[in-house]
Computed example of a mutant assay.
Amino acid sequence: MAHGGNVIAELTTDHREVDALFTKIEEQPLGNPRRRELADELTAELVRHSVAEEQYLYPAVRAHVEGGEELADKEIGDHAKVEQLLKDLEGLTAEDTNFDNLVAKLKFEVADHVRDEEGRLFPMLTAACTPQMLDELGDKVRRAKQTAPTRPHPSAPSAPPANKLLAPGAGLVDRARDLLSGRSH
């Protein structure tokens, strides 16, 4: 899918890509090693997406949307649940009995989060920000995803400035681990 445009278009494209990855996982036979490969790809996409949102989207929501503090806190809480599920999934093979249960739980949590963002947060942000602000946020989110981690780090900070300082370093380490392990993303 094509990335670009304002922050809403960028993140919505991410959401559709994640949906497609869940579908690809479900299309594979149970226990097939390809399910693990796709789960790794899904993990990388979700982690990069979450890090970028925490660095740029949620601070903008806090600054510009009425009730933005509570809304951003709720979304970051959703991310924490997803990241813990990703961490729990990380060490499992596709043959592991917990693998499919965790993928199902992950899909439920992600779908709930996406519905909330697209149905509530994105319209509120669109109403509160100028088109130029949304475009600038889109650029920042795209840049953040390029250096973001590709593996879950549930104990990492989720708010600026700490997350903006630590995420690129974690991303570099994750990419090195991915290269050495042959993990694709």
Rank of each mutant, 00 (worst) to 15 (best):
K105P: 01
R143F: 08
N101Q: 02
D135Q: 15
L121P: 01
P160D: 05
E83N: 01
E69Q: 12
P154I: 01
T97D: 14
L92I: 07
L102W: 01
G77W: 00
H64F: 10
A63K: 08
A127F: 05
A63P: 02
T97P: 14
A63C: 04
N98L: 12
T126H: 10
D112G: 14
F108A: 15
D112M: 15
L125V: 05
P161M: 04
R143N: 11
K87H: 15
K107M: 12
L125D: 02
K87M: 12
G67Y: 04
G119N: 02
L134Y: 05
R142K: 14
P152E: 05
V110E: 02
A63Y: 03
K87T: 14
H153W: 07
P123W: 03
D78Q: 05
Q132F: 13
L102D: 02
F122M: 00
M133H: 06
E66Y: 11
I76A: 03
D88M: 12
S155Q: 14
R62D: 10
T97R: 14
L106R: 05
E95P: 03
E90V: 02
G119E: 01
A156H: 08
A159V: 15
E136G: 00
T126W: 04
A128Q: 03
V65Y: 02
D73Y: 12
R62S: 09
L106F: 07
A148W: 06
K74E: 11
E66A: 13
L89E: 03
